[in-house]
Structures are given as structure tokens and as C-alpha cells.
Design a protein around this nucleic acid. Structure first.
Lengths: 189, 189
DNA sequence: GTACGTTTCAAACGTTCGTTTCAAATAAAC
DNA sequence: GTTTATTTGAAACGAACGTTTGAAACGTAC
């Protein structure tokens, strides 16, 4: 090709915005990992689907595990930050009085729904990807989840303990695990 | 070893009952596939965990895909047969009158719970394995599921159509897919 | 004891995988 | 224009994978 003017690619996206390849890899990996799982999806399939070079993965991320971490962190960090922000906003209006359990769970689940409805935040695809991370857990993935959930989980746990002063911390955590409340995830089980 | 008298192995199971190796492979594969997924579990890990030889897999099953099929069919066939038997028994007592939706769903879910509570039928491990089959579907796995569900799904569909004469078949199937009623699984989606 | 089905063993096949290297081309930033 | 960051390209590395082969040992049944 002799044409040197910038042309949109097949997806009608600018072909040469900086780190366009990195973004294409992230989005394609998120989709293929969600559909097929981590082990069943090869880097060659990801790069071929994203129409980028194989070596770009190791250039931008370093390894396949690091790519999985990047896909996970990119969505999970804003999600848990939103959960923290909304809890902060709620507590700011309560003037020190303990919140109700309903209100606490409402902001938590509400943040999940906001993500689910927002396509720019990954939409429902990432929630399914998150299920993969819990279903097919690598050792490194476990650590990522533990790190990402740590701060928010403690905050929500304390809020629930204030809302339920007659419930011991052990009973609260045990029951949260039982009903699969992942925001209290401590990586222990 | 010069000792030739039969000795129990580590699991206290007779070491030389015919096809003991085949059973050990099936049980170990069921467990590891459930915990890690199909692609993430290698034949070498399965045979090493089961303490049998690697070549025994291809001797008894022929391939890894055939092993997955064997693990799936071993549990799914009796489960769906039980679902059929219980529906037959229910219809035998109804003397031709259409069954209630509650009764139909009751025997179906009841069969699932009976499996879940029966360790010799695979217990809850197989139900999780079944989830793997739906989550990480190979082309061959799709065909196995389609074949295994075909007969029972049609019977339950007809029973529900008789119970709900004012609902069209299309609406019934569409709604069943929506609420994830896998016993109406037709492999189409 | 012979025959047959089962299981182990060691070794290798070809393929795919994640990863690396080196070079070249392209685009962005200064 | 020079420099830096990005992207592509072709090729290969060692490792792990599913699979196959050929031979030997073991078990049971007749």
C-alpha cells in the first residue's frame, strides 16, 4: 500500500490512535475469555480475532496472566470504587446514625446494576467475565480478587456490623459467605 | 515386588477388580473437570491424580473428548431416565386428565434433588459438572447434551402444553428458555 | 496351562501453546 | 528532523499437550 493518509479500520475506529492495539486486545480478550474460559482461549486466537500482532500482547502486558489481570482490574477497580463512593455518600447523609441493612445492600446492588446497564463500563459482559474469574481461579487471579475486594469489603462489613449490632462479626461473615455476598469476599474460602 | 496376594491400594479399594482403572479415571476426571474446567485439566493430571497409567485413558475411552462424553453420559442418562420414569408414573395416576404445572415441575425438580442427595449418583459434584458442560461447550459436548435431553425434553414439553392449553408452543419454549428451564433445552440457543 | 482382557512402562510422534528475539515499519511527541 | 513509543513481521525456543506405538506384566476365566 502506498496510501499514507489515516484510514478507519473495519470497525470504523481510527487505525492509529495511540495504544489502539492495547485496547483492542483488552476488549477481545474480555469477550473470548468470557465465552470460552481462560485456558481454552489462546493468545493466538485473541490476537487473530483482534487483528493485531501476536507479540503485541507481551509488549503491552508481559504475559497471559498479566493480560487476565488487566482485563479484570480495568472493570473491577471502577466498580468497587463506585460501591465505595455510594456508601460514602450514604453515610454522609446519615449524620452518624447507623444505616439500615436495606440501604446498604441497595447501594451495593445498585452499583452492580449501574455497571450492568452501562455499555462503556463493560456492561453485562464483564459480570459474566467476573463469574469466570471465580469459576476458573488461577492462583494469581485469586490474589487479584483478594486485593480488589479488600478495601470495599471491610467498609461494607463495618457498615453492616453497625446496622446489626446484635450480630457477631463471625456470624455476619459466615452468613455472607453462605448467601454468596461477594462484597464480603475475603479470599478465605 | 514378589508378593502376589491381592492387597488393597491406598484408597482401600480392591486393587485388581476388572476395570478398576476405568472407574478411577471416570471419578477423578469428573472431580478435576468440575474444579478446573475441561481445557485446564490435562490427561496427565487426571491419570497422575488417579494413580493410573496415562495410556489407560486412550485404551478405555479413545480420546479426551470421549472421556468427557463418558463422564457426562454416565450421570446424565440415569438422571433423565429418572425424570422420565417419574413423569410416566405421574401420568399413570392421572387417568388421562392433564397434569398441573406444579405437579410437572415438582417431579422434574424432585428428580434433580434426588440426584443431589444421592452420593452414589454423583451427588452435587455432577450438577456442578453439568454446569461446566453448559459453560464451556465443545461442539461434541453440545451434541451429547442435545441427544441426552431430546427425549425427556419433548415429553415434558408436551405435558406442559397439555397443562397450559391456552399457551402456544412458541411462547412456552421461549419462556422456558428465558427462565433457564434446561429440561426444555433443545440445543438451539 | 493357555488365552484373553486389563494395566503398566518407556518412549516418541506431531501439534499447539506461551514466550522470546531481532529487525523493520509506522506513528506520535518534542 | 530527531527521538521515542508503538505496531508489525517472521521465526524460533522450550514446554506441555493429546495421541500412538510396542512390549511386558498382571489378572481372571476357562
Amino acid at each position: 500500500m502506498v496510501v499514507s493518509s489515516p484510514t478507519p479500520d473495519v470497525d470504523n475506529r481510527p487505525i492509529s490512535s495511540p495504544q489502539a492495539t492495547k485496547l483492542r486486545i483488552l476488549e477481545t480478550a474480555e469477550r473470548l475469555f468470557t465465552e470460552q474460559g481462560f485456558a481454552a482461549t489462546s493468545l493466538r486466537e485473541i490476537t487473530a480475532t483482534a487483528r493485531v500482532n501476536l507479540t503485541a500482547v507481551n509488549y503491552h502486558f508481559g504475559s497471559k496472566e498479566a493480560l487476565i489481570d488487566a482485563v479484570l482490574t480495568r472493570r473491577l477497580q471502577p466498580l468497587n470504587q463506585l460501591r465505595l463512593d455510594e456508601l460514602n455518600a450514604l453515610e454522609a447523609t446519615s449524620c452518624g446514625r447507623p444505616l439500615s441493612v436495606t440501604a446498604i445492600l441497595n447501594v451495593y446492588v445498585g452499583a452492580t446494576f449501574k455497571l450492568d446497564e452501562n455499555p462503556t463500563s463493560g456492561g453485562s459482559i464483564f459480570l459474566r467475565f467476573l463469574g469466570r474469574a471465580f469459576t476458573e481461579p488461577t492462583e494469581q487471579v485469586k490474589q487479584i480478587l483478594q486485593r480488589q475486594y479488600a478495601v470495599m469489603a471491610v467498609r461494607y462489613k463495618h457498615a453492616l456490623m453497625a446496622a446489626l449490632p446484635h450480630v457477631s462479626e463471625e456470624d455476619l461473615v459466615a452468613h455472607a459467605v453462605y448467601v454468596r455476598c461477594h462484597f464480603l469476599y475475603d479470599g478465605g474460602y
